[in-house]
């Protein structure tokens, strides 16, 4: 999932300051799972903004609506009927959702309410961790299902570095050494031999070769 966190309310207030009729748009997918931009968070943010506006005697309308997904046009279309009532949208989607909405409604400003963080998992209640960089060439097989690009602070493909101590990364004692995890896991499967080869420099063209990436699937097109 894509994780995100809400921006500080003062930053949001500054961005929406020029507008009088604002629709806060939540997103029911990833950012709902990470409790940043789902229906509940959208309601809470909208009410906090309304309260702040009232306290400052500002004449502002802030309504709310949550879409299933802001990054899929079939869902964004649902804004068609209501958009004329507003002079700005405050999107609680990830960066992809904000941009998808903005592309569909070029006449209206779309303001981001979240900071998009990373591709990761929900590890525990209130704990999300980064685990994928979307590099376009998955190497998890070689490393026992643990991604050194995402989870080693130096992105080593031939680790561990000299800073691995007691299973912990030198960068932060809270960060487990990805390479210790890789070694432990491969050892369990008698597959440590996989680490004897030298993994060559990664082909970053698959991630950033020609600017923004695109997937084209003719079999999916009608």
């Amino acid at each position: 999932m894509i994780t995100a966190e809400q921006k500080p309310i003062d930053e949001i207030r500054e961005m929406i300051n020029p507008y009088k009729r604002i629709l806060a748009v939540g997103c029911g997918s990833c950012v709902a799972e990470c409790a940043a931009g789902g229906q509940k968070e959208t309601a809470m943010l909208a009410s906090a903004l309304r309260m702040a506006a009232r306290m400052n005697h500002e004449d502002v309308t802030i309504d709310e609506k949550t879409l299933d997904r802001q990054c899929v046009r079939d869902f964004v279309i649902q804004l068609d009927d209501v958009i004329q009532n507003y002079d700005a949208l405050l999107s609680l989607a990830c960066g992809a959702g904000v941009q998808a909405v903005a592309e569909m409604f070029p006449e209206i400003p779309v303001i981001p309410a979240l900071n998009t963080e990373f591709l990761g998992e929900t590890r525990d209640q209130g704990l999300w961790i980064e685990s994928c960089q979307g590099c376009g060439d998955c190497m998890l097989y070689f490393f026992g299902g643990i991604c050194p690009i995402s989870r080693c602070s130096k992105q080593l493909l031939n680790g561990p570095c000299g800073g691995s101590k007691n299973g912990v990364c030198e960068v932060d004692p809270e960060v487990p050494c990805a390479w210790q995890m890789i070694i432990d896991r491969l050892a369990r499967f008698n597959a440590l031999g996989r680490l004897e080869m030298i993994y060559p420099p990664k082909d970053w063209a698959k991630k950033q070769g020609k600017g923004p990436r695109k997937i084209i699937r003719e079999d999916q097109q009608s």
């Binding site: 031939n158 570095c161 030298i198 060559p200 420099p201």
Partner: peptide, 10 residues
């Protein structure tokens, strides 16, 4: 920005 395009062995 940490580059780490190559690692030391590479």
């Amino acid at each position: 920005m940490g580059v780490f395009d190559l690692d030391s062995i590479q």
